[in-house]
């Protein structure tokens, strides 16, 4: 039941998460920060702007991105196979990238290509993480993972750390906010969207928060308090990292993912498989 509610209300809950994040970020910088409902104010304001677009394909892809992102979340929460949910996320990336590279704006195209670099960094790791969860739980079913008696985090510490460091790549946080890079390419894939069309991307990002933190929650197994604790810790850690670090080059990101995160996660999986 709760998963149906979470799926249906994902944009709203995601909006609150984003609002909290902006406050947390501001407090970390000794600022007051915007009110909690700020994302929704932005949302309503964007509804009131005159719709402008480059061409219909571009605007359409923004909307498809939102739909695909929401559908990926539905697959994750209402379906039962984690691996399928991971692959569904690629559809959202497809819509985003096709949209972003369909305009002749250098920033947008650069952002699209960097988005692809993000994908090769986190996609294999997500697959590996799901397999690692399978190794502990014995099932790819999200319900079995959530009913697991033990503590998956204790058996998969390295996988969890690897995933924790992957979250900035998925949510576009510093040091890996390479595709968005607000000071450099001004939002990358989202730059050309304006008014109501930008709204689709803006809310799509909120849904992605829920999508990513659901995976973090799974590391708690059936101990929901642990899952919540992990989500909160991960949330704080990501924001701290976002505030404390500068942006890296995309090469550094790919090297970091392939040279450090994936071997680390694989090591954990190998050792665990041998142990069992």
């Amino acid at each position: 039941m709760i998963n149906v509610i979470l799926t249906l209300l994902a944009p709203i809950i995601g909006g609150f998460v984003y609002g909290i994040e902006r406050i947390v970020k501001a407090r970390m910088q000794k600022r007051v920060g915007p009110p909690l409902l700020q994302p929704f104010y932005d949302f309503f304001k964007l509804m009131d702007k005159r719709p402008l677009m480059i061409h219909s394909l571009h605007a359409l892809m923004g909307i498809m991105y939102f739909i695909a992102e929401w559908f990926a979340l539905a697959v994750l929460l209402l379906g039962n196979d984690l691996l399928i949910a991971v692959f569904f996320h690629v559809i959202a990336v497809l819509a985003l990238v096709i949209g972003a590279s369909s305009v002749r704006s250098p920033y947008s195209v650069l952002g699209a290509l960097r988005e692809l670099m993000h994908m090769i960094s986190y996609e294999p790791l997500m697959v590996l993480m799901v397999v690692a969860l399978f190794l502990v739980v014995g099932s790819f079913d999200i319900r079995d993972v959530l009913a697991y008696e033990g503590y998956p985090i204790l058996r998969l510490p390295l996988v969890f750390i690897a995933f924790l460091l992957t979250i900035p790549m998925m949510l576009q946080k510093s040091p890996f906010d390479i595709a968005e890079a607000h000071q450099e390419i001004i939002g990358g894939p989202e730059i050309e969207y304006s008014g109501p069309f930008y709204e689709a991307l803006y809310t799509g990002k909120w849904i992605e928060y829920i999508y990513v933190f659901t995976f973090v929650f799974l590391f708690g197994g059936s101990h929901y308090w642990l899952g919540v604790l992990l989500v909160i810790l991960a949330f704080l850690f990501i924001n701290l990292l976002d505030n404390a670090s500068a942006r890296l080059d995309f090469r550094a990101m790919v090297k970091f993912a392939w040279g450090f995160l994936i071997p680390m996660a694989a090591l954990n999986v190998i050792l665990l498989a041998l142990w069992q």
Binding site: A26, R31, G33
Partner: peptide
């Protein structure tokens, strides 16, 4: 801190 008022420098 003008972000208090919801202002953002979007660029």
């Amino acid at each position: 801190d003008i972000e208090r008022f919801g202002m953002l420098n979007r660029g």
